[in-house]
């Protein structure tokens, strides 16, 4: 299902399909490697609900919901909460 990137939940992964941004923003996203086909994950939401912290190509990129809205993605797993729990689980494993 196609959704915009701001609709992801923390821990959910998705694949970028389309970028509806122009000019400055588009160029910046391209330079950062946010291109159709790349996998992104929403890591967390800032304390006041915006911006969002995404992970892609092994680094973290934060952007506002208003920017993320221009990027169309498709979820890779449909179970956001389970995905998140899995992440938690991992955290403990790497610690031990």
């Amino acid at each position: 299902m196609k959704i915009s990137m701001d609709q992801l939940l923390p821990g959910e992964k998705a694949t970028v399909l389309q970028i509806y941004a122009a000019g400055d923003l588009r160029q910046k996203l391209l330079a950062m490697g946010l291109l159709p086909g790349v996998e992104i994950e929403l890591i967390r939401v800032a304390p006041l609900g915006d911006p969002l912290d995404f992970k892609l190509r092994d680094f973290h990129l934060s952007m506002r919901r208003s920017e993320a809205r221009n990027i169309i993605v498709e979820r890779n797993n449909h179970h956001g909460w389970r995905g998140r729990r899995k992440r938690r689980h991992w955290k403990w494993q790497t610690k031990l």
Binding site: P51, F59, S62, E67
Partner: peptide, 10 residues
Amino acid sequence: STPFVMELPP
């Protein structure tokens, strides 16, 4: 206002 796209470096 302008777009906000910022890296969070380690």
